[in-house]
């Protein structure tokens, strides 16, 4: 919501405000997943497993629009825009650099909102498969979504045959972002 908080706020208050912003974003990803055709036909256990490993990656795609690569600024939920230099001083350097790089690459592809939504669906079903019980069903779902994304993009931009493969190359980028940053520690104290 806001990169800096006043010294008068307790760690509990900071935690609560973080949670209040972050929890709805995660729930929106859950609702989004449930709207993917075929997702709810997977077993509930497999739906949960895919969401657990893919939600951070979907959020990274959603947060891309908050990163302005040209101005090197990030817009927070409080509506304020902060320069990278200010944020770097707060100690979030490596995640910010990785996010700027990723949002620049994804932004350069100029996807339409429906293409972006289909891409996020592919991201979610391409998540780490450890713990998935019906691998075949997940693969079928993924193949259908990739086919739909490819046909949408190729139909709209028949002259740009490189766009779809470029987009698929963003999947390993997201996997790396997830592996490097989702294990960041959140610590809070309760009396």
């Amino acid at each position: 919501a806001c990169p800096v908080s006043g010294a008068e706020r307790s760690s509990q208050e900071i935690w609560e405000s973080f949670s209040q912003c972050f929890t709805p974003a995660v729930k929106e990803v859950v609702e989004f997943a449930k709207g993917i055709p075929g997702f709810q036909e997977l077993s509930q256990q497999d739906q949960v497993m895919l969401l657990k490993s893919g939600t951070f990656q979907v959020l990274m795609v959603r947060f891309c629009t908050l990163f302005n690569a040209e101005d090197r600024t990030v817009t927070f939920l409080n509506g304020k825009t902060y320069p990278l230099s200010t944020l770097r001083a707060l100690g979030m350097g490596s995640l910010l650099d990785a996010m700027f790089e990723f949002s620049e690459k994804l932004g350069s592809l100029g996807l339409e909102p429906d293409e972006m939504a289909l891409f996020m669906a592919v991201v979610l079903v391409s998540a780490d498969r450890s713990g998935i019980s019906d691998m075949w069903a997940v693969e079928q779902l993924q193949e259908g979504l990739i086919r739909a994304l490819r046909s949408l993009i190729n139909r709209r931009r028949p002259d740009d045959s490189a766009l779809f493969p470029k987009l698929l190359l963003r999947l390993p980028d997201l996997r790396t972002l997830n592996n490097l940053h989702s294990e960041k520690l959140l610590a809070f104290r309760i009396d």
Binding site: S19, F22, T23, V26, K27, V30, Q44, Q47, V48, L51, K52, T55, F56, H181, S182, E183, K184, L185, L186, A187, F188, R189, I190, D191
Partner: peptide
């Protein structure tokens, strides 16, 4: 007396998802 709890962002996401599914069952 203060208890110090530590979790990762991934743990937090996981917790929200588990709660969401448990509520809708």
């Amino acid at each position: 007396h203060k208890t110090h709890r530590v979790m990762t962002l991934a743990d937090h996401i996981s917790h929200i998802i588990t709660q969401d599914f448990a509520r809708n069952q």
